[in-house]
């Protein structure tokens, strides 16, 4: 995961507003700039208002062909709406069909935001469409677009979504595996993360640990986030020794504590010795 993509900066006018005000602005269909901020606000504050999800669904539908140079355009609203839906948990599952529809949009950034949201919502219906967008492999889906640094598909987001959703069918694994050999280390990291989540095979964890010593800080940061997302406990010592900010190591270690417990854990239980070992490392990084 590219560090920093998880927490979008405050877009536009970052004034403090109320939930009512955010919902009011999201209804202003002739003011995309107000809608853009409102959509971001509802996700950032994890709104549970009953109007939030329907309004964000509307915002997703108001996209149109891209109009570069038009400032904050409807597509930017749709992208923020997708990101917000990913953060609203169970009530946002009603929007899964709308998010699936945007997976085939021409807008690369919207596909990326929708893929991440579908991953966050654990949308099993998204597995096949996500798999299909990656099926042409690193040489096509993973090829660089002429004239931009982008790949043909938002591979990192698509791979991470497949890992997060957690359907470990052989056809899914077969499509992810070739991306472990992609020329870009961030894509390799995302592929290893997804495979580690889906199979728990140590070889994928070992490859992520190897990326913790990559010469580029950006790659080391991504590998930290990916090991945290997969909750790979074997990485405890290498994470502690990585040359990167303590803030990111703490996020990764939080993942080591919380991920193995996801779904199965006893939240009321006292921490076991292996968890205490992770907490001790976290304490030393504060």
């Amino acid at each position: 995961m590219a560090a920093g993509t998880a927490d979008q900066p405050i877009p536009g006018n970052g004034d403090p507003i109320s939930e009512e005000e955010a919902l009011r602005r999201l209804r202003l269909t002739d003011d995309p700039s107000a809608q853009y901020y409102a959509a971001w606000w509802l996700g950032r504050n994890r709104s549970s208002h009953p109007d939030a999800v329907p309004l964000l669904q509307e915002a997703l539908r108001q996209r149109r062909p891209r109009d570069p140079g038009a400032g904050v355009e409807e597509n930017a609203v749709a992208r923020n709406a997708a990101r917000a839906l990913g953060k609203l948990g169970a009530p946002a599952r009603a929007a899964i069909p709308d998010l699936l529809a945007t997976l085939d949009d021409d807008d690369h950034g919207l596909r990326e935001a929708a893929a991440r949201a579908l991953g966050e919502l654990r949308a099993e219906d998204a597995v096949e469409p996500l798999r299909r967008r990656l099926a042409s492999g690193p040489a096509v889906a993973g090829a660089q677009q002429p004239g931009t640094p982008r790949l043909q598909e938002p591979c990192e987001a698509l791979l991470e979504a497949l890992g997060d959703i957690g359907v470990a069918d052989p056809p899914v694994l077969a499509v992810i595996e070739p991306f472990v050999g992609h020329e870009r280390p961030l894509i390799r990291s995302a592929a290893c993360r997804a495979l580690l989540q889906l199979t728990a095979e140590p070889r994928w964890g070992d490859q992520l640990v190897a990326l913790l010593t990559h010469q580029q800080l950006q790659v080391r940061r991504a590998a930290l986030m990916d090991l945290g997302a997969a909750g790979w406990r074997q990485a405890l010592e290498p994470i502690a020794a990585t040359l990167a900010e303590n803030s990111l190591k703490l996020i990764a270690l939080r993942g080591l504590v919380e991920q193995p417990a996801a779904g199965a854990g006893q939240p009321e239980a006292a921490p076991d010795p292996a968890t205490v070992a992770v907490l001790d490392v976290m304490d030393a990084l504060l």
Partner: peptide, 21 residues
């Protein structure tokens, strides 16, 4: 929102000999 915070507080209480359920 972060279970790790609750866990760390549980560990602190345990080390201080306070029962915490």
């Amino acid at each position: 929102e972060a279970p790790v915070v609750s866990l760390r507080a549980a560990l602190a209480l345990q080390r201080l000999g306070v029962s915490h359920g």
